[in-house]
C-alpha cells in the first residue's frame, strides 16, 4: 500500500512533558484522514513536525515513501494554526509573495487562486481587516498554491460560519476526488469530520490511541442489542447453541452486545430467560458516532 505519510514513534518533548508521545501514523494515498483529539492533545505539534516547522526528538518521518523530507515537502500544502499572512498586505499581495518565493512562473495564478477560494473583490482590503473566514480562505489558498499532493490542515473550519463550513467541506471533497489530493485534517468537531473522512486517528494526551477507517468505524458503531445479565458465559452459550447467533461480543462483565437477529429481540430475551439467565436490562443500542468518539477520547475525565 502506498503511504503518503508514515511516522515511526515520533516524540516531542517540551520541558519534561511529552507533547507528542511515540506516534506512528499511517496516511494512505487518496485518504482523507481525520485526526481527532481534544485541544492540547498534541495534534498541532504533530502536524508541525510533519511540516518541518519543528524537529522531533525521536522517531522517523517518511513522506511519499521517501526519507528525503526537504524535497518531498515541496509537495505538501499546509495550514497549521493560524494562516501565515502579512496583515499589512492585501490577499493578492500575500499570494504574490508566495508566488515569488516559489518561483511560480504563471503570473495569473494569483488571481486564479483568489477566485478559486472565493476572495475576488478584496483587492483593496488589507488582511488585518479580514474576517476570520476570509483569513482562513486565504490560508487555504496559500496551502493550495503549489498544487500539492498532500494537504495538512489544522482545524481549518475553526471560526467559520455554517455556510463557510459547508463550502470548505465541499472544496476538500472536490480536491480529494478530482485532483486526488490526500488530506490530513485535524479537528475536535467530530460531526464535521465524519462527513468527509475515510480514515481516522485518535490522539489522546500525545499518544495515538487508535487508527481505523470508516469501514471499521461502521462496524464499531453498528446497531446492537445490549443485554445486561447475571451470567454472561451461560448467555453466550445459549446464544450460540440455541439461537445460532455468532455475531456478538462481551465488552464487559455481565454485558453482551448482539449484532444479529435484531428484528427478533423478544425471541432472544425469551430464550435466555427460559434457560435460566436473569436479564437485568436489555435495550437496542445504536451507539452513534459522536458517542463512540467521546468514549474513545475522554472516558469522561477532563484530564
Amino acid at each position: 500500500m502506498d503511504y503518503v505519510l508514515k511516522t515511526e514513534n515520533i516524540t516531542k518533548v517540551y520541558g519534561n512533558h511529552k507533547v507528542v508521545d511515540s506516534v506512528s501514523m499511517h496516511v494512505k494515498k487518496g485518504a482523507i484522514y481525520g485526526f481527532i483529539g481534544k485541544n492540547g492533545a498534541g495534534k498541532t505539534t504533530f502536524m508541525r513536525m510533519v511540516a518541518g516547522l519543528a524537529a522531533p526528538e525521536e522517531g522517523e518521518i517518511e513522506l511519499f515513501g521517501s526519507g528525503e523530507l526537504e524535497k518531498q515537502r515541496l509537495r505538501i500544502g499546509t495550514l497549521i494554526e493560524n494562516p501565515g499572512v502579512y496583515v499589512n498586505m492585501t490577499a493578492k499581495e500575500n499570494l504574490e509573495v508566495i508566488r515569488r518565493n516559489f518561483g511560480i512562473a504563471e503570473k495569473q495564478a494569483v488571481d486564479d487562486m483568489l477566485e478559486f477560494v472565493g476572495l475576488t473583490g478584496t483587492e483593496k482590503k488589507k488582511v488585518k481587516n479580514f474576517s476570520m473566514g476570509m483569513k482562513q480562505r486565504l490560508g487555504i489558498a496559500i496551502s493550495l498554491f503549489r498544487n500539492p499532493d498532500f494537504l495538512i490542515l489544522d482545524e481549518p473550519i475553526n471560526g467559520l460560519d455554517p455556510e463557510g463550513i459547508i463550502e470548505i467541506r465541499e472544496l476538500l471533497l472536490k480536491l480529494n476526488q478530482e485532483k486526488r489530493i490526500t488530506i490530513l485534517i485535524s479537528s475536535h468537531i467530530l460531526g464535521e469530520l465524519s462527513k468527509i473522512a475515510t480514515h481516522y486517528g485518535i490522539i489522546k494526551n500525545g499518544a495515538l490511541i487508535e487508527e481505523f477507517d470508516t469501514g471499521e468505524l461502521d462496524e464499531r458503531c453498528r446497531r446492537c442489542q445490549k443485554i445486561f445479565v447475571d451470567n454472561e458465559n451461560l448467555a453466550a452459550n445459549i446464544l450460540e447453541e440455541k439461537l445460532h447467533i455468532n455475531s456478538f461480543d462481551i465488552p464487559g462483565k455481565g454485558v453482551l452486545r448482539i449484532f444479529e437477529q435484531l428484528d427478533d429481540l423478544e425471541q432472544i430475551n425469551r430464550e435466555l430467560i427460559i434457560n435460566g439467565v436473569n436479564i437485568k436490562e436489555s435495550y437496542l443500542a445504536g451507539q452513534n458516532l459522536e458517542g463512540y468518539f467521546m468514549e474513545l477520547l475522554g472516558g469522561g475525565a477532563n484530564d
Binding site: 518541518g52 516547522l53 494562516p83 501565515g84 496583515v87 516559489f102
Partner: peptide, 14 residues
C-alpha cells in the same frame, strides 16, 4: 508576528 515564515520553512528551501 503572524507566522508567515512558516509558508517558506520546510518547503524545499534550506
Amino acid at each position: 508576528g503572524n507566522g508567515a515564515i512558516k509558508n517558506v520553512t520546510g518547503k524545499g528551501y534550506g
